[in-house]
Structure formats: structure tokens, C-alpha cells
């Protein structure tokens, strides 16, 4: 592990504000679209219901207005509900490379880490200011510096929080944990040998 292309020190691009607290995974990726055995088409289903009006036409949902964005800016407890990785997979495949938010549901954040998507946090004011800035500057660049835990946009740079586990995993390129944990298989066997129920 630790191939060069696995190191994620910074991500950037234009932004998309996805306002609202407790945005759940049933909104992000409705269950009816999980009946596929691959994640290939998930981008098409991202916020499927929320993005459409009653006639099935695209409405003014931010994802429709900020097509091509790379950084999603969200509020509190984003990604709550189900454990479906379909949700961050859909975001990633739609083009999202990083998320700035007030807070995340834990499984959602873990899933982001597994996919190499930095999910950083900041306070309410910082986040809403950034969301407003995006509305005013749809073509403006936002950069998340994972190593320094900062977000830069316009002429501003703000400090953000990132969990140590996510920061290390992304910067060191060890966010794909399968091979990393596989290298410990002899230790796994010792742990298992000591479990009375196995």
C-alpha cells in the first residue's frame, strides 16, 4: 500500500451547497436504486427524488444548478440513516472529491474514508458562509488541504477539523485498508485462537 496515486493531500474544484440538517441516505440515494449489483450507475440516482419536481423534470436543486462541482458543502449530521455505501459512491461518481460539513453520521464518514473522500468539519457560521459564497461564486475554486486541515476559497482560508484517522489514512495513502490489514493476518490468527467461541 501507499502507492503514489493513493496519497490524498488536497482536493479542489468548484462547490455545491447541499443545505439542511440530518440529510439521510434515503434522500441521498433512494433505496429503489440499490437493486443493481455494481455501483456503476449510482451517479444517475444521486438525490433522485429531491432533484425532480412532480412531473419528473429537474427542479432547482443545487445539484442541478452546480453541475460539475467537486466539493459538497453540507450541514449537520449529513448522511444519517442507513449504512449504504451507495450514497458516497453516488456522490463520488457524480464528481464529488471532498466534503465540507458541520457534522456527519459515522458510517457515512467511514464510507467516505474507504473511498478516499476527505470529509472535513467546521462550525455552522463557517459552513453557511461558504455555502453563501458558492451561491455568489458558482465558478469559484475551493480547495481542501487535507494535510494542513484548511479550506481555501476566494481570498479566504479557514481552519477545519478532520479526524486523525481520516487525515493519516488519506495523507499516507492507506485509506484502502484491505491490503494493510491483510499484512497482519498472522496476528489475526492469534487473536482468533484466543476467542472462546470460534
Amino acid at each position: 500500500m501507499g502507492d503514489d496515486d493513493q496519497h490524498i493531500t488536497e482536493v479542489g474544484g468548484t462547490g455545491v451547497p447541499i443545505p439542511g440538517d440530518d440529510v439521510d441516505t434515503d434522500q441521498i440515494l433512494p433505496a429503489k436504486f440499490m437493486k443493481e449489483v455494481t455501483f456503476d450507475n449510482m451517479a444517475d440516482y444521486l438525490f433522485y427524488d429531491a432533484r425532480r419536481d412532480d412531473d419528473g423534470e429537474f427542479n432547482d436543486h443545487p445539484l442541478n444548478r452546480f453541475e460539475g462541482a467537486n466539493i459538497a458543502v453540507v450541514n449537520q449530521n449529513f448522511g444519517c440513516g442507513s449504512s449504504r455505501e451507495h450514497a458516497p459512491q453516488a456522490m463520488m461518481r457524480w464528481g464529488i472529491d471532498g466534503v465540507v460539513g458541520e457534522s456527519y453520521a459515522e458510517i457515512f464518514r467511514d464510507n467516505c474514508k474507504s473511498l478516499g473522500i476527505p470529509a472535513v468539519t467546521a462550525d455552522h457560521e463557517t459552513v453557511t458562509t461558504l455555502q453563501e459564497w458558492i451561491e455568489a461564486n458558482p465558478d469559484g475554486d475551493i480547495e481542501i488541504d487535507v494535510e494542513d486541515a484548511t479550506v481555501t476559497y476566494g481570498d479566504r482560508a479557514v481552519d477545519v477539523e478532520i479526524t486523525d484517522a481520516m487525515q493519516e489514512a488519506l495523507v499516507e495513502g492507506i485509506w484502502d485498508t484491505t491490503a494493510l490489514m491483510y499484512s497482519n493476518m498472522s496476528k489475526v490468527e492469534r487473536t482468533v485462537a484466543d476467542l472462546p467461541y470460534v
Partner: peptide
């Protein structure tokens, strides 16, 4: 867990 973690469990 998410699907990438299912992969982790299957493999390790």
C-alpha cells in the same frame, strides 16, 4: 458497515 468494509471483512 459500508461495502468497502464488507470487502475488508471478507478478505481479512
Amino acid at each position: 458497515v459500508g461495502t468497502s468494509q464488507i470487502r475488508d471483512i471478507l478478505a481479512t
